[in-house]
Design a binder for these strands. Structure first.
Lengths: 288, 288
DNA sequence: GCAATAGTGTCTCTTAGACAGTATGAG
DNA sequence: CTCATACTGTCTAAGAGACACTATTGC
């Protein structure tokens, strides 16, 4: 500690005062850290209008934004040495009862993808989305919120372990952004864009599908997340041409479509996490 | 506040205790929030070995990790209503004296790209990289660190406004990861991978180049960041075929290469932020 | 002149997308 | 049989990469 003015680093460290403050954050950084989760799944619309991308929301029971919908989330439990990703899993479990899920892809960095190692099909994909800490985003105090993005296959009603009245899956296209508390509309929008983009170059679409699925079901995942129809024949060929995307089970569905049709072959998720070649979205007009 | 058990949301809100705690985080979440910056630039190696990708580091002057190198960073100043991105800019300015830079691309989400609006060439690109909050990453207390990634053109020596002895640009390939404090080796690795990946599908390579540059200089950026040589002819054609990537200035360099050669045409950054088609890295073998 | 650098032409292979055709099963 | 769904063949256009060639300049 000689001529150092602002060594910075992970702590203040510079002046003696700042150094001491580092040992007592209570006197230095009154910032709360929370975790919010954008949990996405594909399920039937409640009004029977076919399948749609749904996001898990809870209804707020207190001020501020009382009565608004919000993303599930809550404080990181620092006293229990809880990791950020663990906190996200816990919040999700409290709202949906989906515990005992092998959360894949958890890591400090948002881009860190899961290496499936040996588990054939991780049941839940979780990745860091981003951190939102604009002053004033919570009217009460300074809150920095680490947002996570979760991809889940169709789950039981979102109330098993949590509060039945508050939690609900809502179709993202029928959700009024102004209905969401805090800056959760922004977080949701970022999560949706990330999800849509990730389907292009990763095999994560399988995380929305049951353990065994047909190519048509996989296509439905893409169509639902991207919100546009895809050419069935070309999609089929492209999926099978990407090595490791899907793996043949040598079985077929028990019967064809409701109104006739051939039995479809069943596949499970393959070992690859990155798609090569990628499945790019159509309709990417001009940029800028 | 009727039957709600775990409304969650952005705050505890559930029980009365938790609700009250939300108003006094000092008693609830003793977590410090810091910002760390992975600042990258391309500059001449000190030993004369050509150009290389450099990262800005400081030398720690206090415990823990005294004498180690670390990424510039420090506490978010909650009392001053400082945004996370502002904190990153401030830390960078304190170490390098590069103030008055139009920081582009700042936002809550890491993927949010800058819309250059009307400024022709933003001088510094800044984006959120990810948040690192594993318990124990700082031996003294619970620290959650929001990491930012900055791309800068070749800057004056990294000491203008800060501490001359502590700050230094180091070539990333000559940096021993175990020389870095905390989990900064991991953060740096994530930042490098993000940078390499972003060159593929965005026009950010121009952020490493001077306001006017030749195609060869742009190619040198790619070669330096990716660490592999590119085919000059094909690169040339691909850059010019991506609309909005570069814009012709109708001028050329004053003279050709040192050992002869044609004068090169000068370009400036175009309006596009996303490249179409993308410039993919070679050597992406098999995945998984 | 020669060597070096900038830039273009052209060929082949792969992929995307359009479209049409075949295979199979439910009613 | 008819229609729906699964799957395959084929053609065209565009991009990637290899390679060769032309253009221009310093020495």
């Amino acid at each position: 500690m000689t001529t150092v003015g602002q060594p910075g680093g992970d702590t203040p460290g510079g002046t003696e005062q700042a150094w001491l403050a580092a040992y007592d954050p209570r006197a230095f950084a009154p910032i709360a850290v929370t975790v919010d989760v954008v949990a996405l799944t594909i399920r039937q619309r409640a009004d029977g209008g076919g399948k749609a991308l749904h996001v898990l929301t809870i209804r707020r029971g207190g001020m501020p934004y009382e009565g608004f919908r919000a993303l599930p989330g809550g404080f990181v439990r620092a006293a229990e040495d809880e990791d950020l990703g663990q906190a996200a899993v816990r919040e999700l479990a409290e709202e949906t009862g989906l515990s005992a899920l092998g959360a894949a892809g958890e890591g400090g960095a948002p881009e860190a993808d899961s290496a499936p190692s040996d588990a054939p099909a991780p049941r839940l994909h979780l990745e860091q989305l981003g951190t939102y800490g604009t002053p004033g985003r919570d009217p009460r105090m300074r809150v920095v919120s680490v947002a996570y993005l979760a991809f889940a296959p169709d789950l039981p009603e979102a109330t098993a372990g949590g509060d039945a009245a508050a939690a609900a899956w809502l179709p993202v296209d029928a959700l009024d952004p102004s209905e969401l508390a805090f800056d959760h509309a922004r977080i949701l929008a970022d999560g949706l864009e990330r999800a849509r983009s990730k389907l292009e170059y990763t095999a994560l679409a399988t995380a929305f599908a049951p353990p065994e699925f047909t190519i048509s079901e996989l296509r439905e995942v893409y169509e639902t997340v991207w919100g546009e129809p895809l050419h069935a024949g070309n999609f089929h060929r492209k999926v099978l041409s990407a090595p490791g995307f899907v793996e043949d089970t040598d079985t077929t569905t028990a019967r064809g479509g409701a109104r006739g049709g051939r039995r479809a072959r069943l596949y499970r998720a393959g070992g690859a996490s990155l798609l090569h070649p990628a499945l790019l979205r159509p309709s990417r007009e001009e940029n800028q």
